[in-house]
Structure formats: structure tokens, C-alpha cells
Design a protein around this nucleic acid. Structure first.
Lengths: 169, 169
DNA sequence: CGGAAATAGTTTAGGCTTCAACTTTCAGGG
DNA sequence: CCCTGAAAGTTGAAGCCTAAACTATTTCCG
């Protein structure tokens, strides 16, 4: 049924490429599939166990670390998403009573968002389970592998950041 | 339903999981941020240079590898997204003339999607640029690092798959 | 044959995400 | 003081994505 997946003649391509091109692509695709696999599983469990989503979870996590609350703008920067996105998430979370808005005295444009007691309780439950899930999913790695992977990912991030800040094609 | 997830208190936990739990979380967060960083940059460049998106690009990539076309169901499995999603993407890509639908003789429920000549040309352009981008972003890694990372990610994927197929909490 | 079950694909409702346009407010220089 | 520009936040349109319900067809098997 499935065709033999006629692969491009890799050898020929490699002759011209400066030693990496194709390998880099393979590496990226593997990292992507790996990250997506984990992410999908975590999303699935958040939905099944807590009837919530990853963005909501991340949002609460940001507020948990900021006892005095955060402005939408600050959350937007920390989560690396747009402001409009934060508006929508905040609306739903407030609707559910997990966060609350509070006006800022010194700047009437701004507002701070913070966890309600209920939100704090709920996030604590979710956070504990989340931590267990990750440990379960990565449990097959040895301590050595974990350390090596952490270091390599750090180098990767530096490589990417460097490339972005420079050329930025 | 869900077990109370009785959390071992911190002391006991440390005894049993000396170097796992928290480290796994750190590892996962780093992998996630790394993958998202790359993905965001690729999305940005696809939008700026080709006025397209990553899902569209992935969709065309699947069809490129299948000269005889694919059914929506097959694409859905390969891209690991739902069928409804494929319906929407296919509609837009057909609208733009990049792919075409063709009825299947033997099964009147099914349809095959394939690249049009225009779609094939367009994807070739995008694909070449995409490959260059990835090589540029990962260019800071040595050949050794790349190899090690590839191997570690493979182990990670196996660990995750194992955990999912087993417990599946 | 005939009906139950499975499969292919679409549709719908709702959440996530972005970009661009917009409103309100603040800050600085004439 | 006023005007211009920047900043905080919201809104709207459009695309992406999922789960669930639905239609149409095929397959299985009794």
C-alpha cells in the first residue's frame, strides 16, 4: 500500500552541501517530532485530568511566580506571545475565577493580573501532576543522558539565538 | 476517577528520586523553549519570504514525497493532526491552486490530493530556503554535537513512546 | 442477501494565535 | 499649555487545531 518512499539520492546532494545541510534538517525534524510528541501528551493529560489547556497552564504558572501580579504586557513578553492573545486568555481565566484584574494606581492604562486563592489551589494541583508526567515521560533516560542532553540543548539555543540576532534573513 | 495523587512530601521524595523529578522538568522546559525558538523563527521567515505558514509547508512536503498523491486520512496520520484539520488546510491550498483533488475509483468515499505543477514549483522554492534556514540556525553546533544530540533525541523519543504506550495516565 | 460495524471525509463549535487597526493614557518638547 | 509620539491594552479578521457529531460508503459476517 505505502509506496517505498523513494528517497532523494542523498549522496549527490551531500557533495555540494557544506557538510551539515542535510544533517541539520534531520536533527531539526527529530527535535521537532520529539518535542511535539511530549507536548501532545501533556496537552492530552491536561485536558483529560483537569479540563484545561497548555496555554492556560503556562499562564497560571507565570502568575504563580509573581505574587504581586503581572501586567498583560509583562505576561505577553514572558510567554512570548502577542498582547491580543493574553487578552483572550485572561478573559477566560477571569471568567472561571482563577485570576483577577486590579487597576494600577500610577498608570490608568495598565492593569495587573493575579491568581485568586482558587486559582492558586487549582494551579498547585495541576503543577504537581505536570511534574510527575514529565518525569514519567523522560524516565527512560539515564542521568548521564539527561545531563548531556541539557548541555547540548543549551548549545543549540545559543546557536539559534546567535543566528537570529545576526543575519536575521 | 483520577487517583488522589498523594504527593510524597518533599523530604521523602528526595530520598526516592534523588536526581530525577526536577531535573526532568528542567530538561523538558529547555527542549520546549529550544524547539519553540527555532519554530517561531521558521514561521516568521515563511511568512515574510513566502507569505505562507508552517502547516501549509508541511502539507506540501507530504505531497511532494508522494508522487501519486495521498488521501486526507493518510496526510492526517503523517502530520499527526486531526482529519478536520486536513479538510480545512486542503480547502485553502486547493483554493490557491497548489494542490488538486481527484476522485478514487475503487472507493467512492475517498479522494486523493496531489500537488499541481504550480504547487510543486512553489514548494521547491520554499523547501530550498527552509533547508538553508535550518542549517544557518544550527550552524553553531559541531559535527560531534549534532551526532550526540541526534542520538539523545532518539532515546528521548523512545522513552516517551514507551511511557505513553504503557501507563497512559 | 441484509444489517451491524468500521472507515473516509466533512461539518460545527470553540479555543488558541497572529497581525493590524484602534482607543486611551502617558511623556516630552515647543 | 498643546501637540506629537510612544506605550498599554483591546478588538476584529483570519488561520490553525481539536473533539464530537454527522453523512456516505464499504466491509464483515450470519
Amino acid at each position: 500500500m505505502t509506496p517505498p518512499d523513494t528517497h532523494v539520492d542523498a549522496e549527490t546532494a551531500l557533495d555540494h552541501a557544506p557538510a551539515g545541510h542535510k544533517d541539520d534538517l534531520r536533527l531539526w525534524l527529530r527535535m521537532l517530532s520529539c518535542a511535539r510528541l511530549i507536548e501532545a501528551e501533556i496537552r492530552r493529560r491536561l485536558r483529560i485530568n483537569f479540563d484545561t489547556t497548555l496555554p492556560r497552564f503556562d499562564f497560571l504558572a507565570q502568575l504563580e511566580r509573581a505574587p504581586d501580579g503581572l501586567t498583560p504586557g509583562e505576561i505577553s513578553r514572558r510567554m512570548m506571545v502577542t498582547g491580543g492573545n493574553v487578552t483572550g486568555l485572561a478573559a477566560r481565566l477571569e471568567e472561571e475565577g482563577l485570576i483577577e484584574r486590579r487597576a494600577v494606581r500610577e498608570d490608568r492604562r495598565a492593569v495587573t493580573l493575579r491568581l485568586t486563592p482558587s486559582g492558586r489551589r487549582e494551579f498547585a494541583r495541576q503543577s504537581a501532576a505536570h511534574e510527575d508526567w514529565v518525569a514519567e515521560l523522560l524516565g527512560g533516560l539515564s542521568a548521564t543522558d539527561r545531563g548531556a542532553l541539557l548541555r547540548l540543548l543549551d548549545r543549540t539555543r545559543r546557536s539559534v539565538r546567535g543566528a537570529i540576532s545576526e543575519g536575521g534573513a
